[in-house]
């Protein structure tokens, strides 16, 4: 079963675990669920987030200063596991996962019914050579990133490995948090990619910040993922979700 297949266009929110306060994560997940968000990416903070812009850099360093770590996060998720119905995805850089112990990490993901894991700095080649076996042993699915310039051949390879998850289509080659509206010259490529990903949902992320961006994402893709804009709204104490749904 693929938990990311729905007969409606989806909206997903990325949160930084442990931001704004150490104990805010569980409450945020339940609140986003109650507001109709379709799935949530829970960001595991890392000291050196090389693909992230200033907003997620800042939320990550605040979260770490608050004391967030893998054990705390899993315990928090455990405390709400009977209340969460929507899919939870864990997203983070590879190093904290490796240092925690991949097997221990996957075991806890399985226990908590984590729907998928995104590790942007791990390529599909490295996954298949070193880690796939353990992911399969614990029945945890991986979600891979592609970009508009990823070759069709490579997209096919990623699709083949994603039957239980989704394709994370990065809107354009840039780090997270870019504020400009989506580049309409890429919309055609998004549609082509959607065609290539038969049977696997395509979610568009990176740089999506407004209702208009979400609507544009929904023209070609199955869902939109908002990260920096949501975190920025928390920093500015604004209710972004009310504007979006």
């Amino acid at each position: 079963m693929n938990r990311f297949i729905k007969d409606k266009k989806q909206l997903s929110i990325f949160i930084t675990a442990g931001f704004p306060t150490l104990d805010s994560t569980a409450a945020q997940i339940l609140e986003l669920q109650s507001k109709g968000i379709d799935f949530i990416e829970v960001g595991i903070p890392f000291s050196d987030p090389m693909a992230d812009g200033v907003v997620i850099q800042e939320s990550s360093s605040i979260a770490l200063a608050n004391g967030m770590n893998m054990d705390v996060l899993f315990d928090q998720l455990d405390s709400i596991k009977n209340q969460v119905q929507i899919p939870l995805v864990l997203m983070g850089y590879l190093n904290p996962v490796l240092q925690y112990g991949l097997e221990k990490f996957l075991k806890r993901c399985k226990d908590l019914k984590i729907a998928s894991v995104i590790l942007p700095d791990m390529s599909i080649e490295i996954y298949e050579r070193f880690y796939k076996e353990l992911f399969e042993k614990y029945e945890v699915s991986m979600t891979f990133l592609i970009t508009p310039t990823t070759s069709n051949e490579r997209i096919q390879k990623v699709v083949n490995a994603s039957s239980k998850s989704f394709i994370y289509l990065v809107s354009q080659t840039s780090i997270t948090g870019k504020k400009q509206a989506l580049d309409s010259s890429l919309f055609e490529r998004y549609s082509e990619i959607k065609q290539l990903c038969k049977g696997v949902p395509v979610m568009l992320g990176f740089g999506i910040s407004t209702k208009e961006d979400v609507e544009n994402a929904h023209l070609s893709c199955d869902g939109a993922i908002i990260g920096s804009a949501y975190i920025r709204s928390l920093m500015e104490k604004k209710d972004l979700i009310a504007e979006l749904v």
């Binding site: 693909a51 590879l94 700095d121 390529s123 080649e125 490295i126 990133l145 592609i146 780090i175």
Partner: peptide, 18 residues
Amino acid sequence: LGFYGEFGGAFVPELLRD
């Protein structure tokens, strides 16, 4: 894959792959 023994490789986001 660019490994010396167990070390090395290319651990970068897809955005840098090309």
